[in-house]
Nucleic acid binder design. Structure first.
Lengths: 153, 153
DNA sequence: TGCGATTAAATCGTGTGCGATTAAATTTCT
DNA sequence: AGAAATTTAATCGCACACGATTTAATCGCA
């Protein structure tokens, strides 16, 4: 059994754990976005779903789930809320009645512009260059990839 | 209004957003930990609370909340579950009856050893050196700090 | 053709997270 | 000393997140 963080067999501090740093950063991001997105009537996961649709409209629940690493049990109620807010439309596809296709309504498409300010606000707040952010994103994606790949053992 | 991610006013891909990278990495970590911690009868947030107590026993709900960035509305039910599992004890302090002091029970203290393997397993899985992890943790904490500091505006 | 296997969403139950409010104890200030 | 302000947990309601199950549609294969 490998000692994960120190040469000595001495427990590291909580702050040294990668999982805890991720936990905190994710929470901080959540707390930062919440009031800004609240003005748009969105939650953070709803915002991510809309971002996915802005990039590629008309995706199935499964496609969205794969992109966002979410299952239908999470997405279905979330999408129903977006639908009842008039931002997206949910329809079963004609080809395959099992699939539900999610597409943007005009009101949902408009939010793209407003949400731009939110991302810009975060960018200003953290005060990092594009290169630094790019490197950090790559590192995080590397960790994500390794962890996801190493799961089924 | 600053364009956050590109010279051109062209929306970046979802994968370029730091918030999304964090979201994915945090979820990946969660999904990795869940089955391992499940064998110990713990959830991920419960594990973090225990880690905090292993490092410093006998903390108030407020202290734990400050460390983990959680409010009493989240901690109270979580701590009650840890208590009913026999891992911790909750008692109001004699000095100040408002505060609830949380301390480890023997069974909770024992889990420290077992949980060690979980951290070691993650360390092996991501396959990064201590230096790389340390740098990443520092970068993440930097982002967390900047975001938290920039909130009240 | 038709029946079992597979696939895609939806449903259910539990456990976070958090904004808002409440309740009780302590501190402050006159 | 005593009322008002403050502090600390707890409570309530809503929205994820996910394991497990269910339902409905499609596929595959004899």
């Amino acid at each position: 059994m490998t000692d994960p963080h120190s040469e000595k067999h001495q427990p590291p501090h909580l702050d040294d754990f990668l999982c805890f740093a991720l936990y905190k950063a994710h929470h901080a991001m959540n707390r930062f976005y919440k009031p800004l997105l609240g003005e748009l009537g969105l939650t953070y996961p709803q915002y991510l779903v809309l971002m996915a649709l802005w990039e590629q409209d008309d995706q199935s629940v499964g496609q969205l789930g794969e992109l966002l690493h979410l299952e239908s049990n999470t997405l279905t109620p979330l999408l129903k809320r977006l639908e009842s807010a008039g931002l997206v439309r949910r329809r079963r596809t004609a080809n395959d009645e099992r699939q539900v296709q999610v597409s943007l309504m005009p009101e949902g498409r408009e939010l793209k512009q407003k949400s731009w300010d939110v991302a810009a606000c975060l960018f200003e707040t953290i005060g990092m260059s594009r290169e630094e952010i790019g490197t950090l994103v790559e590192d995080l994606n590397g960790v994500t990839g390794a962890v996801v790949a190493g799961r089924g053992r």
